[in-house]
Design a protein around this nucleic acid. Structure first.
Lengths: 204, 204
DNA sequence: GTCTATACTTTGATAGAC
DNA sequence: GTCTATCAAAGTATAGAC
């Protein structure tokens, strides 16, 4: 609907992604969005948390679409996941290692302090896992295994992005991709379903 | 040497870990450390960046020791890595999902803005990778492969911590551990060394 | 819906007495 | 090394005219 509102959300996604939640000021955000300061509280009367919540969902939906797009283009999950990692390499490179994950930086900032913002972060992560799992399950794997795999893939991707962004090198992303892809082509852990047994073993 | 200085560093590690760099105020930090406000600039005349830099290194060294300890206790890399993941589960649980990685939250905050703090973050990550690689190489794997593996393990661990912290559930951590351990016991990706070829393939 | 102005708080950082 | 006081700037949020 509103043009200005969209610009605010996009600026939010950009800035939160690069500087985190606390590190981004609303005035900087409005200025970056070329929006008047008054629109800030016009469109988001509940302030920063409300804006962040919607910016997270906005960026999250974009990324979910990208994931689905990859699986639509490459029916083979291995190729799809390779494309996702490769896409991340491109994003990091072309942004000078500024654009990492639009959710992770906010999530770490607020996970323990601002419940209202933590929740959308968790939901977006869950939606990405669902998108990955759906793509994987489409190739014939049982659904539970697909969700476990999807969680593992997202975790590896997120961590690799952090390492790459911090070291300003795409190597961690590329190296991690190799092992994840290998997992995808190989046989899965014996009985990925029986997480309970494995859990007990890991604890000891 | 100084008792007060140590308390400030420890408080820094605690707070930065849970709230990020921008999200943590120096006054809150001094109060939490039960240190007078004046000691802040007495011990860290260059201000917040200097404190953060040293707090990062402090926490980083602690974690590196823990990694080495795990490999010393369990000569089998698989068991050592399982212990590291299990330890993280315990830390998250016992802290009410507050204590994630002491570096990642700061790294995402400042990676693109505060070079002085980004650098120690990158160095600490590198030291953890080195510690992991050393433990893995000790079991007979070639050195280059060990470093690649170590990067992959750390990435998966970091990402899993994020997912677990955000969702307030240890499931992502436990599921990710399963796949990582499976990679460790299985055969490695064909020619982990020839990263260049793989890189080219991932791009296409 | 936008403009200008402003209240109030917190931030990082200094100064000077002791 | 610590205390008290204070600074300028930036933070979020509001108010009222247009």
């Amino acid at each position: 609907m509103s043009e200005t509102r969209d610009r605010l959300l996009r600026a939010g996604e950009r800035l939160f992604r690069a500087q985190g939640y606390s590190g981004t000021g609303l005035k900087q955000l409005a200025s970056e969005a070329q929006a008047p300061w008054s629109s800030m509280y016009h469109f988001f009367p509940q302030g920063k948390e409300q804006l962040a919540e919607q910016a997270i969902r906005y960026g999250g939906e974009l990324y979910a679409q990208m994931i689905r797009q990859c699986f639509a283009t490459y029916p083979d999950p291995r190729e799809a996941v390779a494309a996702i990692f490769a896409g991340e390499v491109k994003i990091l490179r072309s942004s000078g290692f500024r654009n990492g994950c639009p959710v992770a930086s906010v999530a770490l900032d607020v996970a323990s302090t601002t419940e209202r913002v933590r929740k959308p972060c968790a939901e977006v992560f869950a939606s990405w896992i669902a998108a990955l799992a759906e793509g994987i399950a489409a190739s014939g794997k049982p659904e539970e295994t697909a969700t476990d795999l999807a969680t593992y893939i997202l975790a590896s991707l997120e961590g690799a992005i952090i390492l790459s962004r911090t070291s300003k090198s795409v190597k961690p992303l590329e190296q991690t991709a190799q092992f994840v892809l290998h997992t995808l082509q190989g046989k899965l852990p014996r009985r990925a379903r029986k997480a309970k047994n494995a859990r007990a073993a890991a604890k000891s």
